[in-house]
Amino acid sequence: MTTKTMAMEQQTVQDGNKLASVMTVAAWIALTIGVITCLVNVTEFSDRNLGLMIGVGFLIGSVQIYMIGAAIRLFHRDKSSRGSI
C-alpha cells in the first residue's frame, strides 16, 4: 500500500515538472514575440501605437507566465519533500 502511494506522489511531481517546463518555454516564446513586436513598432513611441502596446503586453505576460511556472515547480518540490519525510 505504501509503495502505491509513493508511486502516485512521484508521478504527480513529474507532471508538475513537465508543466513547469512547458510554462518556461511559453514564457520564452512570449518574451521573443514581445521583443520583436516592440522593436518593429518603436518608431512611433506613444500610447496610441497599438503594436507597441501589444509588444509591451507580451513582455509583461512573459514574466507572469515564468513566475507561475516557477511557483508550480516550487509547490511540487515542496510536496515531494513532505511526502518523503
Rank of each mutant, 00 (worst) to 15 (best):
T3F: 03
T5K: 07
T5S: 03
M6H: 01
M6P: 00
M6I: 05
A7T: 01
E9D: 02
T12Q: 06
T12R: 08
Q14C: 08
D15L: 10
G16S: 03
N17E: 09
L19S: 08
A20T: 04
A20Q: 03
S21Q: 12
S21T: 15
V22I: 12
V22C: 03
V25D: 02
A26N: 02
A27D: 01
A27P: 04
W28L: 15
W28G: 11
I29H: 01
L31V: 04
I33G: 08
G34V: 12
I36H: 01
C38I: 13
L39Q: 13
L39Y: 12
N41H: 14
N41M: 10
N41V: 12
V42A: 13
T43C: 04
T43R: 10
T43N: 13
E44C: 04
F45M: 09
S46K: 13
R48I: 08
R48T: 13
N49H: 08
N49D: 08
G51P: 03
G51M: 10
G51Q: 04
M53S: 10
G57I: 09
F58M: 07
F58P: 00
L59Q: 11
L59W: 11
L59S: 11
L59I: 15
I60W: 10
G61V: 03
S62N: 04
V63C: 12
V63G: 14
V63K: 08
I65A: 13
I65T: 10
Y66H: 13
A70I: 08
A71W: 14
I72A: 12
I72M: 06
R73H: 14
F75N: 07
F75W: 09
R77Y: 07
R77P: 00
D78R: 07
K79E: 04
K79R: 15
S80Y: 02
S81D: 02
R82H: 00
G83S: 11
G83Q: 03
G83F: 06
S84H: 00
